[in-house]
Design a protein around this nucleic acid. Structure first.
Lengths: 227, 227
DNA sequence: GTCTATAATTAGATAGAC
DNA sequence: GTCTATCTAATTATAGAC
């Protein structure tokens, strides 16, 4: 159990040798998101990664440890793409910074629907995995978002009558549902949620809905542009 | 496979004899919603219903057929609680009728989070079950909702710039996330989503967000009151 | 590092007693 | 109508060859 046999991430002396482990992690996140922890079998994950099932215990020890590493990677990518902590320190009004965050987050979710699928998958159950995600990854982000919500409320761009928990779930729900339910959306509306125009329209809609001004946060397309 | 051995729903000549089947369906929906189709085992469902595993093939034939009947029941309950088709024919402006629908739907979801959990569970995959739900249950409701959205837009209470598919997912996402992620919400905020005050606050917040006027649709608490 | 083989467990579905 | 017992298949994890 304690013999996790952790590999050092820096292993590729030649070209790209250490990619098997990463490939497994990528398909694992996708599989866990789509099928849930129980529904995703390590055999199927290994097969999708083009390797044998025996490699998964070898690299990660247990299925649970594999899941944890896959989730860590997902949040690392979210951090890079959205830059919550960086954006908090940026200049501009809270409303403007919130709008930038909303737009970046929507683009991230559009590109990585598996992130929201995984979050919804675990957030609905009261198990160890939900508690671990909440304590390890969600709470730090939520604290920054709360300050931003309250700042925007003080500026008068967010209605004061709506409490922070309501804002939080109104926001994450309204933002992600289109991309989480992508297959349903295609069948029901014939709309492709990953279409860049659809993504930008959704970002505009969310900013308009919450902040009123649809021009807010329009400029920066990339996290690096404001850094 | 074709020998489904369907029971007639009306069987109870005495007091309440035909309740075993219904009990199985109730715990099945709950289990499928929480754990997904694969994660929920027929043994666990039977155990929760207080019966033997062998009874499930007896009543429903296959696990898939059990799932279908459980979903049918869920949508039947939604129809009773919200009364979409009834409400469409009611008098009042489209905005007013939409607000009534929003409030009823939120109360329904608060009481039956398993409904949204099941919808999210299936809507994220492109499988037979998603297609069946969409064609059988979602499309009829969506068509009524679309007319209501467009009516409210013509009245000027909904922004014209936001397209119907965006509205649809903004709405279902913003409405349901709080109750879908109930366990996360308890751990993160210490807020109990099923608390009636929290439910009404959320309904107020959604109506305010989409329709501006938080007083809209406040009066009727029960579907029967307007019938 | 990647594979094959396999052990131990659990899944859904069937057969048949009562 | 409900149960026990059992069949077949699939699951995670382990042992060990190369």
């Amino acid at each position: 159990m304690a013999t996790t046999t952790a590999r050092s991430p820096r292993k590729s002396a030649e070209t790209d040798e250490a990619s098997t482990r990463d490939r497994i992690l990528d398909v694992a996140l996708q599989s866990f998101a789509e099928l849930g922890f129980d529904g995703a079998s390590t055999r199927a994950i290994a097969s999708l990664a083009g390797v044998n099932q025996g490699l998964i215990p070898y690299y990660f020890g247990t299925k649970d440890a594999l899941w944890r590493e896959a989730v860590d990677r997902a949040f690392a990518r979210l951090g890079e793409a959205v830059g919550v902590s960086v954006q908090e320190a940026a200049d501009g009004s809270s409303g403007e910074r919130l709008a930038v965050l909303i737009r970046r987050y929507i683009r991230f979710v559009a590109e990585h629907p598996e992130f929201v699928m995984m979050m919804n998958e675990e957030g609905k159950r009261d198990g160890e995995r939900m508690q671990w995600i909440t304590d390890t990854h969600v709470r730090p982000i939520f604290e920054i978002m709360t300050r931003l919500f309250e700042g925007a409320r003080d500026e008068g761009v967010l209605p004061t009558e709506i409490g922070v928990p309501h804002f939080h779930y109104l926001f994450v729900g309204a933002t992600a549902a289109l991309f989480h339910q992508a297959h349903e959306c295609r069948r029901l509306f014939g709309v492709e949620p990953t279409d860049p125009r659809v993504v930008e329209n959704h970002a505009d809609a969310v900013v308009r809905l919450f902040l009123g001004d649809p021009e807010l946060g329009r400029a920066p397309r990339d996290p690096q542009e404001t850094a």
